[in-house]
Design a protein around this nucleic acid. Structure first.
Lengths: 193, 193
DNA sequence: GTCTATAGTTTGATAGAC
DNA sequence: GTCTATCAAACTATAGAC
């Protein structure tokens, strides 16, 4: 049985890229920073990612996508009531935000926003992430009995609002935007019952 | 009477910085890009902004703050009904987004997110912007008859949701997130009447 | 697969003539 | 106030030994 901490070089590089770009964005993250943080040499980085920084960013965004999707799924399935699930999600995001001392916001947007124009593959990776999260929320609402179109629209606003509230919380260094967003999303969902 | 297009060098530099950082972020915007876009020399840039890039970013975020606040105020005062004002805002943001071919999102967040940690003055400038926008929305709701605490909370979610929806729209290259957000915010506001 | 060395460019910032 | 020239450092990317 293998210790689960033991991860390969490639995986360490992806994780380091994801975390660094989450905090400093695409342009603010250097390949040397990545290789140092991942405890790998620059040669190894280019060995695994011959496409260079863009390829790395795409992979890192995919990693952030998966990470956030996991959190979303866990919390949504823990709460049976969809409105309660909204406040639970907000509470979870607020905790992560505060615990990292407002360092770790959305693992996708910080890097994606600034490079969406210049590097189309990066934007496309971010788009896949948003679609993934939207689908997870929509499915939860459909399983809770909402009609497909209502669930789809609500899921859009849920994702947008959590994204915006997390960003606002990060800038303001306060969980208030997330707390309030959770309450309001629960109320909005309830209003369609 | 002076032609209104005629702006001084300092103002041209601020505007160029704001636009470029809106699109490419803080690290993605070079001082040479700025001086070229502003049709000013590098010497002039440092003449007006001896504090260098950080001072420029703070000024540019203040400019974006003022710009977005103006749009917000205009649209909110045009619509008497607060719920209708929400959908009108969303429509306005969606139009700006589509017309720029998804280049120009929020003039503050793209630059602020990636540099909030490294350069505290940049984060503080972004915080002032968010507080300013929050106050504008809250005042509109208070004038519409909502109690102070309800209006304050709603204003938080309105700002968060518009921010998140604009970001999502930019990544997805679709106005749907903004359209849906407008509808839902109107419904949420109405639910407190 | 890992490592070092380095090429070639660009970056933020400064100096000093005009 | 404007301009050119330039510095030192950092960047992405590559080459080639092991």
């Amino acid at each position: 049985m293998r210790a689960k901490q033991e991860v390969g070089t490639r995986e360490r590089i992806v994780r380091a890229t994801s975390r660094l770009m989450q905090r400093h964005g695409y342009e603010g993250t250097g390949l040397k920073d990545i290789s140092r943080e991942a405890q790998a040499t620059l040669g190894s980085v280019y060995h695994f990612f011959p496409g260079g920084k863009v390829e790395l960013a795409v992979e890192a965004i995919g990693h952030g996508d998966h990470e956030f999707a996991g959190l979303l799924r866990t919390v949504l399935e823990r709460e049976d009531d969809p409105a309660a699930a909204m406040t639970a999600c907000a509470r979870e995001l607020a905790a992560g935000m505060r615990d990292s001392d407002w360092m770790d916001g959305c693992p996708v947007t910080t890097a994606a926003l600034e490079s969406a124009r210049r590097f189309p593959p990066v934007r496309e990776a971010a788009e896949r992430a948003f679609e993934n999260w939207h689908g997870i929320v929509r499915d939860k609402l459909v399983r809770s009995g909402f009609p497909d179109d209502v669930a789809g629209d609500l899921a859009h606003t849920v994702v947008s609002t959590f994204e915006g509230a997390e960003m606002t919380a990060q800038i303001m260094r306060s969980t208030t935007p997330l707390d309030v967003a959770g309450t309001h999303l629960a109320r909005l969902v309830d209003s369609y019952r």
